[in-house]
Amino acid sequence: MKTFGLLPSALIGAVASARSMTPMATIAIARLAGRAAPGRLVLLDQPLFEFGALFMGVGELLGDKMKSAPDRTVPLGLLARVMSAGIAGAALAPRGREKAGAAIAVATAVSLAYLTLAGRKRAMARVGQTRSGLIEDALVVAGAAAVVVLSTRRR
């Protein structure tokens, strides 16, 4: 049962594998909507970081469609995934299990980043960069919203 309690952390790590800033942006939106995460929030309990996460999430969704956008597996891309997945994974973990939630989210994000990149490259070859990015955005944002809504409660 304890392992199942960390499932939201693993799932938000999968989100971070494709869009590094979406996990934190989704939790920030949930907080603004009056929802509370089960675990402690690191940084996102500060308004500056909360709004910064929203801004960065939107910026990433827009920037991903640019031809100059780097692969998600470059060192800075992986670092962003580690940070975002760790913060979000801890927030969605049961109280007292934040470190385990962060570790699971980070491991999921980094390992799946290579798989999601391969899938995105195949999709780009078939439908182009912009269309594949928009499809990936829709899937990732919907997944993040579902994970966060199902893992948080009304304050």
Rank of each mutant, 00 (worst) to 15 (best):
K67S: 14
A107E: 05
G128H: 13
F49E: 04
A88V: 04
F55Q: 13
L112A: 02
V140W: 01
A100W: 08
A33V: 06
M21A: 15
P23Q: 07
A125F: 14
G63Q: 06
S68E: 12
G5P: 06
A144V: 04
L92Q: 01
R97I: 01
F49G: 05
V149H: 07
P94C: 07
F55D: 05
T116Y: 14
A36S: 11
L48V: 13
S9W: 00
E98V: 07
R72L: 04
T26L: 05
A118Q: 10
V141T: 11
M56R: 09
L134Q: 15
A30E: 00
L150C: 09
G39C: 05
S68I: 12
V42H: 14
L54A: 12
D64R: 11
T130W: 15
E98I: 05
K2W: 06
L139W: 13
P38R: 02
E98H: 04
T108R: 02
S132E: 15
I12L: 01
A14D: 00
I12S: 00
A125V: 11
E60P: 06
L7M: 10
V15K: 00
A10M: 07
R72Y: 03
R131V: 15
G133F: 12
S17Y: 05
I29H: 06
G119K: 05
G101L: 03
A33Y: 07
R97S: 09
T3Y: 07
G119S: 10
V149Q: 07
M1E: 04
D64Y: 15
F4C: 01
L79P: 07
K121G: 06
R81D: 00
A33F: 11
A105G: 09
T108A: 08
P23A: 07
I12M: 00
A85C: 06
S68C: 08
A125H: 15
A69G: 03
S20T: 07
V141R: 08
A113F: 04
I12Y: 01
G34L: 08
V127A: 14
G77Q: 03
A123E: 11
A102R: 03
A102E: 03
A14H: 02
T152K: 03
G119Y: 08
A145L: 13
T22Q: 05
G34D: 08
L92P: 11
V58L: 13
L117A: 15
A100T: 08
M1N: 05
T3H: 08
A103V: 07
F55H: 10
A138K: 13
V141G: 06
R81G: 03
V141M: 09
A18K: 02
A16Y: 00
R95W: 12
A69K: 14
V42A: 12
S68D: 12
T152F: 01
M83Y: 11
L44Q: 02
L43V: 13
R81N: 01
A123W: 09
V140L: 08
R95E: 10
A113E: 03
L41E: 11
A146M: 09
L139C: 15
A80C: 08
S132Y: 14
M66C: 10
P38D: 02
V141Y: 10
A118N: 10
M21N: 08
A37R: 00
L117I: 09
T152L: 04
M124C: 15
V106Y: 01
R155Y: 07
I135E: 12
L92D: 01
G133Y: 11
R131T: 11
R95C: 04
L76P: 03
Q46H: 14
L62G: 08
A125W: 10
G39N: 03
Y114G: 04
G39Q: 04
L43F: 14
M1F: 04
P75S: 02
L41F: 02
A123D: 11
